[in-house]
Amino acid sequence: MTEDSKKQNNSSELELLSFRLGEEEYSVDIMSVREIRGWTRATPLPHAPAYVRGVINLRGTVLPVVDLSVRLGMAPVKGDARNVIIVVQLGSQSAGLLVDAVSDILNLPRSELQPPPDLAADATQSYISELTIVEGRMIRVLDLASVLPENAIEAA
């Protein structure tokens, strides 16, 4: 992910799309975001892991949707009109990330990002590539490759 974003954006600035999951704030590199869609009901997939909410119709293609909250070990996103699906692309693979709400677009110098400390007890930690503080709030930068569905990574 970081490799990717460095290739795409050589400048020292990093643009992040931040969003809320429960009370926590996360973000993804805006270069990997294709679009943001309102909530639509996903068709559940049998025998899928709990964090895979199902598939939705994105203009004729079948897009798997990941409930990011469940993926990060929290309670499922409720799924109502206020929730949004962030469509991200990683390599040739697309997926939707279901989050509570999108909050902001942040411009940060790369130098203000730091790797997360190594805490073995936390499963979430492997999903986070970097940490930063913006106006007193801690923002986590997601490692996209690790949150997308397993099969999707293999296929990509």
Partner: peptide
């Protein structure tokens, strides 16, 4: 028919 294999992978029975 829309393939699922590419976007998600094989699902038993589907």
């Amino acid at each position: 028919i829309k393939g699922l294999q590419q976007s998600y992978g094989h699902i038993p029975g589907v």
